[in-house]
Write a protein that binds this DNA or RNA. Structure first.
Length: 684
RNA sequence: GGCGGCGUAGCUCAGUUGGUUAGAGCAUCGGAAUCAUAAUCCGAGUGUCCGGGGUUCGAAUCCCUGCGCCGCUACCA
């Protein structure tokens, strides 16, 4: 019996569409792996689905004035469809709002509770008396103590990036009702992870073959020691805490749900269960999840490592009835044209948008060539175009085309009979024989870039073979040699088409139709010469038409615009402050000053300590500009300061004044004077 | 600040346990060929392997340190 393989890709969060970063991280690598194993005849299933709970979805629902269910319905359908078009071969694509998932995850919680694995903690949390719910950090709004943004969230100020706790906010208010939150006691279940650290370490130690970026992250967490983690939240959207469990703990379950990180990975299990139901075999899921020998593989992005390598495995261990992952080949991040992706700034290539403009296989191939397998990688449209034109079209496509055209022109569209083989023929045959094992090993080791590289190398060799054999000459001089050449080229096309299925499944099916071969081939048989002489071949079609510069330029322009317009359109506040009198303005003593010394303040990422000169006066000021200016670059610079600001002590440093700078979300630039003027000069 | 990953050709990236002259693709230049989507094939040049120390007969590779990028995490009026 073949080993059972259970593959999952991270459940995409259903509050937005899928972009290239997602595909490169968790989806394409998994799909290549799965398609390969299906061709091998492995007993494999591939499970995914939408992650539909949590605060961001609630917030989005609120800003659009619709229900959370409407939000997740929208993105679940959108992403499911995009994935299908992209050729993601999930056996099942579930969703965590399903009833099965609610049952499975609350059962999971119940089992852990009955085993006494949770601890309870009662703490004060902020509560919205008007909406009668507890408020997650993100649901508290207030004035940011750092930058005075009146709409900072309780976990972070989105304007200045400062991370906050709700208590730090000035004039806190509920994001839902604007009511002033009150502190109220609430009880939550915690998973004491420290208890399982030893067990987890032992398990991880048994997997030295995991990727180094993954192991590094895990070790980092182990080193600092695992903490108790709350598994429940006060939130009206999610999987409710089972009342029977709450009762045993003497806690009111009302308004409490499983924390999204707890229920989301269980989604893998519940989706598998739904898959089994759909297959008409209720218990089939157990053969994977509850079989000690199942090879469970989670494909994720690097942001998810801690959940899939520590927290979820801990949950599975504690539960006791499930297999642990055999590998978690997390990928790093994909950048775009040299910049970080940003969904909020719309700096991304959205899958649904791509699908309307280009071929699926082009993207699959281009991404596969440059997956962030060992470090962050960069996607550029120019490279995408080059991969498509130079490799898919010119090397692979053209080899197929020249062979098929030749066969039609001179062999009546039939596979010619092979005669005696010479050394070069033998070399080609040898490559065909050895390719499946070699390429398969790479996929099995999660080295997809090597796989596609070597695959294209094979097509390169095929072209060289064609060139060196010169069938257009032997056609007259030695027809038998010519027949052998074309015979072997056709065999090569067949092998290539099978070996390329994991990465370019659509194009490959076109080839199978042209060759009149089975659409259910076997990976290992790609190493055999199975085309029969005399077999009729259909008319070829161009598999990959070139992508013109214009199409690419449009996309590049779009991104450039997204990048610049987002900085200018989003940040400058439309609403200006209320009017002041000239007298008020005159109270500000603005001066030109010169930076004499500048140094970073230790243990701070943002602050610089500056010694400045205002005329003959020397002052020290603290400025939160370290992320935008190097201290040494400031020395000698003329800046503008508020000279009569009340002094303050910031992290133990006296600050006597404040420099002026213009800033928005991601930019900051110092104010200065256009022409040189002595320091101390007044600004009015 | 702590921890982890990374830094190699103009660009995108390989370099397995230290071992000849550090590689591939693209781009550039030259040539061959004309079956084919002006496609293919052959040849050529290019490097402070981020900087600085150290271990070693020998370092891109191991150790220390500095710098830079990315992520997690902490601190932060």
């Amino acid at each position: 019996m073949p080993e059972k393989i259970l593959v999952t890709s991270a459940l995409p969060y259903a509050n937005g569409p899928i972009h290239l970063g997602h595909l490169a991280g968790a989806y394409l690598p998994a799909d290549i792996f799965v398609r390969y194993h299906r061709l091998k005849g492995s007993d494999i299933i591939y499970i995914c689905g939408s992650d539909e709970h949590g605060v961001p979805i609630m917030l989005k629902a609120r800003t659009e004035n619709v229900s959370p269910q409407q939000i997740v319905d929208r993105y679940h359908e959108m992403n499911k469809k995009s994935f299908e078009e992209f050729g993601m071969s999930f056996d099942y694509y579930g969703r965590t709002s399903s009833t099965v998932h609610h049952e499975v995850s609350s059962d999971f919680f119940r089992t852990l509770a009955e085993k006494g694995e949770f601890i309870l903690k009662t703490e004060e949390q902020l509560y919205d008396p008007k909406a009668k719910i507890f408020l997650a950090d993100r649901f508290i709004k207030g004035t940011c103590p750092a930058c005075s943004n009146p709409d900072a969230y309780g976990d972070q100020c989105e304007k200045c990036g400062t991370s906050l706790s709700p208590k730090e906010l000035i004039n806190p208010r509920s994001a839902i009702t604007d009511a002033e939150p009150v502190a109220k006691e609430t009880t939550h279940w915690y998973l004491p992870l420290a208890k399982y650290q030893k067990q987890l370490e032992k398990w991880i130690d048994a997997h030295p073959e995991w990727k180094s970026n993954v192991l590094g992250q895990i070790q980092s967490w182990f080193k600092s020691g695992l903490n108790d983690r709350a598994v429940t939240r006060d939130l009206p959207w999610g999987v409710s805490i089972p009342e029977d469990v709450a009762k045993k703990y003497n806690v009111d379950a009302e308004g409490k749900v499983l924390y999204v990180w707890f229920d989301a990975p269980i989604g893998y299990i519940s989706a598998t269960k739904e898959w089994a139901q759909a297959k008409g075999n209720e218990n089939l899921w157990k053969e994977y999840w509850q079989n000690k020998d199942t090879r469970l593989v989670h494909f994720i992005g690097k942001d998810n490592i801690v959940f899939h390598c520590i927290i979820f495995p801990a949950m599975l261990m504690v539960h006791g009835n499930f297999v642990l992952p055999q590998n978690v080949p997390a990928n790093e991040f994909l950048n775009l044209e040299g910049n970080k992706l940003s969904t909020s700034r719309n700096y991304a290539v959205w899958l649904n948008d791509y699908l309307q403009k280009f071929e699926v296989d082009s993207l699959r191939y281009a991404l596969a060539c440059n997956l962030p397998e060992t470090k962050d990688a960069d996607f550029s449209w120019k490279e995408f175009q080059a991969r498509h034109n130079n490799e898919l079209a010119d090397i692979l496509g053209n080899f197929i085309n020249r062979t098929l055209i030749f066969a039609h022109k001179y062999f009546k569209g039939k596979v010619p009979e092979a005669g005696q083989t010479d050394n070069l023929d033998k070399e080609l045959i040898d490559k065909i024989i050895h390719a499946p094992a070699a390429l398969g090993k790479l996929i099995d080791n999660y080295q997809n870039r090597f796989y596609v590289r070597d695959l294209m190398e094979l097509a390169r060799f095929a072209n060289k073979y064609f060139n060196d054999k010169e069938p257009w000459k032997t056609r007259n001089s030695d027809p038998q040699v010519c027949a052998t050449t074309i015979h072997l080229c056709l065999q090569m096309i067949r092998s290539l088409s099978i070996l390329a299925e994991p990465v370019i499944p659509n194009s490959v099916r076109k080839i199978w139709k042209i060759l009149n071969i089975s659409d259910n081939p076997n990976w290992n048989e790609a190493g055999q010469l199975k085309l029969q002489a005399g077999q009729q071949i259909n008319q070829p079609e161009i598999l990959f038409t070139k992508i013109e510069d214009e199409a690419i330029e449009t996309e590049i322009e779009r991104l450039k615009k997204a990048q610049t317009s987002s900085t200018s359109s989003q940040t400058p506040e439309a609403e200006l402050e209320s009017l002041i009198t000239f007298e008020t303005f005159k109270k500000l003593d603005l001066r030109v000053a010169k930076v004499i010394e500048a140094e970073a303040i230790k243990k701070s990422d943002k602050l610089l300590k500056l010694q400045i000169e205002i005329g003959h006066i020397k002052r020290q000021i603290i400025a939160g500009i370290a992320q935008h200016y190097q201290p040494e670059d400031l020395i000698g610079k003329k800046i503008i300061v508020v000279a009569n600001l009340q002094p303050a002590v910031i992290r133990g440093n006296q600050s006597e004044g404040m420099l002026l700078a213009a800033s928005n979300e991601n930019q900051l630039t110092l104010l200065t004077v256009l022409e040189d003027i002595p320091t101390g000069s007044k600004i009015s």
